[in-house]
């Protein structure tokens, strides 16, 4: 049976929302961005509501990682057009640290090593920055230690990682677990996970995915950036978006990911060619 083709979605309304009454968390409208002189994002539209899990898939160079960095405020990227509203607020005018404090989280594809800075102290400072935004009192090192030990369970991480420098000498899997630990501590409203599955063996993938699933609630949302279906076998998305050439080319349900897995990305190129002719 030939795979079912989804309707051409670029200029159409987005895929019907599951719960139209849920809070709007992130509204990306016609977002254009470049790095140096190279345009990467060329009109991204995406709406995320509370309780949803979205997956953005696409080839290398399609712009999906750029999207995540632009949302988090990476200084190397310049937004040239479009808007991003986070719970009604203009996200693009905020510093990266302000975005984090109000509940946006980026799980890095390649978490950065910071020699000399204790992981525990880093986690505490980050957690307190978020807590102060929520008008919660600062946690002293003792209170924080209790919290962090509890959250370590989410990613089944060995407490010895707290004593080390941030990500220094961590294996790929340990770094990703440390990212999810940060997510568990910061309790973000919108979590963007950039290629969280890359470099993970199957056990680590289960643990990381298990962490993400545990943290997903009706009040927050998750945006998974991924290349492969295998992450979506363990985290079930409500929406799958296919990105190509800096735009979201198609949006569908979790079936779309399976279709991609089966057919590869070549058809995306064909659709893109059709689109560019039109």
């Amino acid at each position: 049976m030939p795979p079912k083709r989804w309707p051409f979605s670029l200029f159409l309304p987005r895929f019907p929302v599951i719960s139209p009454d849920a809070d709007l968390l992130l509204e990306i409208v016609d977002l254009h961005a470049r790095v140096e002189d190279q345009p990467i994002l060329k009109g991204v539209n995406l709406t995320i509501r509370a309780g949803e899990i979205h997956a953005v898939m696409g080839r290398n160079g399609s712009g999906k990682s750029t999207l995540s960095k632009v949302l988090a405020g990476h200084p190397s990227y310049t937004v040239t057009a479009g808007s991003v509203r986070y719970r009604g607020q203009d996200l693009l005018e905020l510093d990266p640290e302000q975005r984090a404090r109000i509940g946006l989280f980026l799980g890095f594809q390649y978490p950065i090593e910071i020699p000399g800075v204790s992981n525990l102290e880093f986690l505490r400072v980050a957690t307190n920055a978020r807590r102060s935004e929520l008008a919660k009192e600062d946690l002293d090192p003792f209170a924080f230690e209790d919290l962090v030990r509890e959250r370590l369970e989410v990613v089944q991480m060995n407490p010895s990682f707290l004593e080390r420098s941030v990500n220094e000498g961590f294996s790929g899997g340990e770094k990703k677990r440390n990212e999810i630990l940060q997510m568990a501590l910061l309790e973000p409203v919108v979590a963007i996970l950039d290629e969280t599955d890359s470099g993970l063996d199957i056990d680590a993938l289960r643990i990381v995915a298990g962490g993400v699933n545990q943290l997903a609630t009706a009040d927050n949302a998750t945006l998974l950036i991924t290349h492969y279906q295998r992450l979506l076998d363990v985290i079930t998305p409500d929406y799958v978006h296919v990105m190509a050439a800096g735009r979201i080319l198609r949006t569908g349900g979790k079936e779309l990911a399976l279709e991609l897995e089966e057919r590869g990305y070549d058809w995306v190129d064909q659709e893109l060619a059709v689109l560019e002719v039109a």
Partner: peptide
């Protein structure tokens, strides 16, 4: 950027790295 994306302000991020 990594430290900032965790809510740690620019100056605090620099001084954290220097004191580390």
């Amino acid at each position: 950027f990594y430290l900032q994306s965790r809510g740690i302000g620019f100056e605090a991020a620099v001084s954290m790295m220097v004191s580390g």
